[in-house]
Amino acid sequence: MLRRRLFIAGLVFATLAPCAYAQDKSIVVASTTSTQDSGLFGHILPLFKAKTGIEVKVVAQGTGQALDTARRGDADVVFVHAKAQEEKFLAEGFGVKRFPVMYNDFVLIGPKADPAGVKGTKDIVAALKTIKAKAAPFVSRGDRSGTHSAELRLWKVAEIDIAKDKGPWYREIGQGMGAALNTAASMEGYVISDRGTWISFKNKGDLVIAVEGDKRLFNQYGVMLVNPEKHPSVKKELGQAFIDWLISPEGQKAIADYKIDGQQLFYPNANDPSA
């Protein structure tokens, strides 16, 4: 009986122990669903690991949630896309410095049938006004993510107080980009998505790009080291090594090289200090 107990205890220990040591040369990056769902990390992280031996563990959340994870000290690096939220994070002292990394753009996705009649237009603000006027189904992330922030900003530009004016046509799902696209596909609605996730999304159904190319659909990604003064557990050398690599010519090339069906998903712009 005792021998069996010991065996079980040993089993439990053996299960748990190895993981504790595997953590040594690794960092946790809180990032967004768009970077994960688009497959970008799957492409660039192996290159980074091959070069430095550092393992990057990505926890994919909405931008707002990712920043909260970093605020609690549960991540070493944040890699997100909502400049205003990122600057607030810096101002609170949680981040060391923000580095622009890359951009892509948002697109308005809608059903082929195009009930709002906005397909092919170039003015995202006018398109949103039309969707509201016609009460065409619209799916909102509703999760404080970068894409959600961008969407709210656009409603504001369109002078629509969406919190007050939303009707049953406006569905907040509180989930990630992929889930929002799945929802839009099944209810034939419009949705704002980052282009990267859209290109890599596999359940497009009847969805197509309705509006693209508006300057106001620009989507900038930034990366920050979590402030070790706030959270001593932050692995600052390893985290900074990752950031340095991302903005190095090599990292930037790796980002530019990520393509699906010949389409580039992200455009590196670390050399643009205003981004």
Binding site: Q36, A179, L181, S200, K202
Partner: peptide, 8 residues
């Protein structure tokens, strides 16, 4: 994750 990526 695969569901959210639309790879049903």
């Amino acid at each position: 994750l695969e569901t959210s990526k639309g790879d049903l």
